[in-house]
């Protein structure tokens, strides 16, 4: 059982948000962009696999550096 803490991800949820607000939010990510859905899916897939069997109760930030600041 683990948690992922995604940053902003490009999904249909963002389609109704003003472009300038989107840009402002993008700039909050040190990596300079939002994440793509597959970038979250890859981490979920890893955590669900046997390769992650010793990772329990963890929270992993998948956020392009957002919470490193």
């Amino acid at each position: 059982m683990n948690a992922i803490a995604p940053g902003y991800i490009w999904t249909p949820l963002l389609l109704n948000v003003n472009a300038d607000k989107v840009k402002a939010a993008e700039n909050l990510h040190p990596i300079g962009r939002f994440g793509k859905p597959e970038e979250i899916a890859n981490v979920v897939s890893f955590l669900a696999s046997d390769e992650a069997s010793f990772i329990v109760g963890a929270t992993i930030s998948v956020d392009g550096g957002y919470t490193a600041q």
């Binding site: 994440g35 981490v43 990772i55 329990v56 963890a58 998948v62």
Partner: peptide
Amino acid sequence: QSVLFLASEKASFITGAVLAVDGG
């Protein structure tokens, strides 16, 4: 296994993160 994952492109949106591999 966690090091290999973080090394790979599958972790492309993970930076500045801390991953506890600690059995809880």
